[in-house]
Amino acid sequence: MSEMARQFSDREIAEDILTGHKYLANYYYAPAILESQNPELRSVLQQVHSDTQSQARQVFDYLNAKGWYPVKPADNVDLTELKNVAERSRSTVSAITHGTTGGQIPAMSMQQGQGIGYQGQTWQTGTGAAGMNPQAQAGWQPMGGGWQTGAQWQAGNPPGWTGATGWGGAGAGWQTGGFQGAPWQAGRWTGTEAGEGQGGMGPSSVAQWSRWGGQPSWTGFGGTGYAGGGTGFGAGGFQGAFQGAGARGAWQQPDIGQRGGQYWAGGQFGGGFGTAFGTGSGQGVGTGAWYGRPSGSYQVNLPDWARQDRPELGSDRG
């Protein structure tokens, strides 16, 4: 035995063994199992993988008992955040699960004016009834992973909109970011940090919206809001994903036309956004409503932060 080899302590040896087993399990056996077609080989690999994990646990326990591998408990902040994530995940999954055969979405359309509507799976521009008929939409496909692809949102999209950051491809948007808050002015996007840049509706998305001049519907319509006190996201929709807009009144569909309704992305999130849409009862907003850059001069009751690059929108401070 060489002098060099003698230098390892018991702790170092145990740590190295643990590292080696973790490496074997994660980088050898796990992918090998996933890539194996041969059922016998797959079974053997699974057994060896399981053994390796058990072995690692033995060494883990040894190190932990010696105080060489301490396990730090999660603090309250971590746990609170985790609970929020769990709740959002539960709501989202529930909405997806129940939304596939859920309630009906009221048909809505822009009465007049120019705009860009969302029909079917693509944005369309045009004059007049550029609205949507949710019944006919195929935009949301819960079982298929959400909005079909970011690319489809980009195709024919309104100025500034990119599919990658809005509702998110692969259904990740509402999972990673929801709007929470009481009245919409005070509301804030509270998507998980992980959601930023990952197709969620995180803070970065909001920043981009304002920069592009587009804004989500809940900040538009002269303060009429977007469903009163919405606490859910549709009876069968994305419950809890959208909270806010409270006390801002109900949806006023006629405004869409009068104001030349701009972009209307009528997403059909689940099936249950109809009940409160227009009644302000707070049962959800449906979704997809998306208003972008206004072409006219109407006042949009946006907070200043959202109009910093859009002087033509005026100010909400008088």
Binding site: L24, Y28, Y29, A32, S36, Q37, N38, L41, V48
Partner: peptide
């Protein structure tokens, strides 16, 4: 065995 399986099997043997 497929090519991928053979490769992984070899790697696992070497690692073990």
């Amino acid at each position: 065995l497929s090519q991928t399986e053979a490769w992984y099997l070899g790697e696992c043997l070497k690692g073990e």
